[in-house]
Computed example of a mutant assay.
Amino acid sequence: MLQSEPAPAARHRPRAATALAGVPEDAPATAVWAALGTAGVLRDLYDRAGPTGVAPAPGRLADLLGAVDARGDNGVTLSVLVQAASALPVLAACAPETGPVRQALDQVRSGASTAALGATDGSAAGSDLAGLGTEVTIGQDELLLTGTKRWITTACTADWLLVLARHRPGRHFTSFTWVLVPATAPGVHIRPADTDLLTGAAIGHIELTDVRLPLGHVVGRPGRGMATFAQHMGTERLAGALWAVALTSRVLADTKEGLTCRTADGQSLWHHDAVRQRYAACLVQVRQLRALCESLGERVAHRQDLAAAALLKSAAGLVADPVLAACAQLQGADGFARGGAQHIRSEAAVFGIGGGVTELVLGAVADHADTVLTELRS
């Protein structure tokens, strides 16, 4: 007798969702990260070699972010995203066989430790990394690090800080180096950012005052910091677009449920043409963003195509806000409830700011206009 084919949900339940099934809903990002690491999800995220040494599987990255987003804490998702798509690949690409960088990589990948990526600087606008003021002096026996990092995700709970610093004057891309800083090192002072948004991300400001470290805490070769960051920027931008799909899909589902329960003129709001049309327009936008992720994900993840990454980053910024704004309005007064659509919309502003302001990223898309047009016509 033939067995019936399992339902789609039974055929495919992402490992990340299984790993998080027993984690309490209100668990902090550190507990979520630990569960993912223990289950091997983080280790297997980067399952193959690429031009930069490691390359994520886009499907696994989508499953990871979808499973974390389903928990409904945008701050926790942001923490996982930055670690999985930025800190981990930088560490993996630069870690030698032994030493503190290898130790940090092993601990973070196993979920035993967490890492914060300290790029945004206190001396320059967030998008002007070449103007950062954090400095590292590379001596014969030790490193000396001084500076300030602002609005750093996971700063307040991280065990390791990946700090981008300049080792010589000037804005040339070879003037910057990554340094691995233990969060408990003397001279490291971390204070929480003054915000009520994305609280689960443990965002903070980092003050580095004459922090002295052994030479082995240089991540990669001196002068390769900006190049390494650029090589893996595409992965974070892909991750951001994948999260935007998961988040907007979740809020759209919640919104439709509410529209079917509330009535006006004797029928549910869902059956009013104006409501249905506006909602459908949001569905089209999110489906288009998902299609863009599916068509460009491999190019970004495996070939580090920065032009494709810019398309994804700008698309996420252009889709998330109008879709969530529409959901917030369609939910009416309910949207102002604690953790409701209005609050989610405020937190989702990170899609248009974090990792590059949408308008600046659109400039990069324009720089590659001829390539995009050629692809559209082929």
Rank of each mutant, 00 (worst) to 15 (best):
Lys149Tyr: 01
Trp160Leu: 00
Pro169Trp: 01
Ile138Gln: 02
Ala93Gly: 11
Pro192Thr: 08
Asp128Val: 02
His172Gly: 14
His189Gln: 14
Gln140Trp: 08
Trp151Tyr: 11
His189Phe: 09
Pro192Glu: 13
Leu208Met: 07
Ala112Cys: 05
Ile190Leu: 03
Thr120Trp: 13
Gln140Ser: 15
Ser110Trp: 14
Phe173Glu: 15
Val188Asp: 02
Ile206Pro: 04
Ala185His: 11
Thr154Leu: 14
Thr98Pro: 00
Thr120Ile: 15
His172Arg: 10
Asp121Cys: 05
Arg166Trp: 00
Leu144Thr: 15
Pro100Val: 05
Ala92Phe: 02
Glu97Met: 08
Asp196Lys: 10
Leu197Arg: 14
Thr209Val: 11
Glu142Pro: 00
Val181Arg: 03
Trp160Asn: 01
Asp159Cys: 01
Leu164Gly: 08
Ala165Cys: 04
Cys94Val: 09
Ala115Ser: 11
Ala155Val: 03
Leu105Phe: 09
Val181Ser: 04
Asp159Pro: 00
Asp106Arg: 06
Val108Arg: 01
Gly126Trp: 05
Arg212Gly: 10
Arg212Leu: 07
Gly147Tyr: 06
Ala183Arg: 05
Asp159Leu: 00
Trp160Glu: 01
Trp151Cys: 04
Arg109Trp: 08
Thr137Gly: 13
Pro186Glu: 08
Leu143Gln: 07
Ser127Met: 10
Gly131Phe: 08
Thr114Tyr: 03
Thr148Cys: 03
His172Thr: 12
Glu135Ala: 15
His205Asn: 15
Val211Tyr: 08
Thr174Met: 07
Leu132Thr: 11
Leu117Gln: 12
Ala116Lys: 06
Thr148Val: 13
Leu164Lys: 04
Ile152Pro: 03
Gly187Met: 05
Gly204Asn: 12
Ile206Trp: 10
Asp210Pro: 09
Arg168Val: 01
Ala124Cys: 15
Ser175Pro: 06
Ala115Asp: 06
Ile138Val: 14
